[in-house]
C-alpha cells in the first residue's frame, strides 16, 4: 500500500466526517440561515476532500478530480448566497438569538 493510498483514505475519511457534521447541523440548527451555513460550507469541504482523495488513489483521474474540486469551490458559494438571499427576501423567520442583521442595516441607510 503506497503513501498516496493512505493519504487518499485519510482525505476521504475527513470528507465523510464533514458530511456527517453538516447533516447533524441541518437537523439541529434553529433557522434557515444557520442551516444554510451548515449545508453549504461543510459540504464544500467534504466534497472537495473526498474527490481529491479518490483522485490520489487512482493516478489517471487526478487531474479530472482537481478540476472537479475547482468547480465545486467556484460554484457552491454562488448558489448558497443566492439561496440565502432568496430566503431573506421572502422573510424567512430568524431565531430569537439573532443579534445583528447587517443586511437590514445596509438597506436602511
Amino acid at each position: 500500500m503506497g503513501i498516496n493510498v493512505i493519504i487518499g483514505y485519510t482525505l476521504m475519511f475527513i470528507g465523510a466526517f464533514f458530511f456527517l457534521l453538516s447533516a447533524i447541523g441541518l437537523l439541529r440548527l434553529p433557522d434557515l440561515y444557520t442551516r444554510m451555513q451548515a449545508a453549504t460550507k461543510s459540504t464544500t469541504l467534504g466534497a472537495i476532500s473526498s474527490i481529491i482523495g479518490i483522485g490520489l488513489m487512482k493516478e489517471d483521474i487526478l487531474i479530472k478530480s482537481i478540476i472537479l474540486a475547482t468547480f465545486i469551490i467556484l460554484t457552491a458559494p454562488i448558489s448558497g448566497s443566492a439561496l440565502i438571499r432568496a430566503g431573506y427576501k421572502v422573510k424567512s423567520p430568524m431565531t430569537d438569538k439573532t443579534v445583528v442583521d447587517k443586511f437590514k442595516e445596509k438597506e436602511g441607510e
Partner: peptide, 18 residues
C-alpha cells in the same frame, strides 16, 4: 427585477467562461 448581489455577479463573471 431585483438586483442580484455582489457574490453572484463576481462569481458569474468567473464561472461563465468555464
Amino acid at each position: 427585477l431585483q438586483e442580484s448581489n455582489f457574490v453572484t455577479k463576481i462569481g458569474t463573471r468567473v464561472v461563465f467562461p468555464f
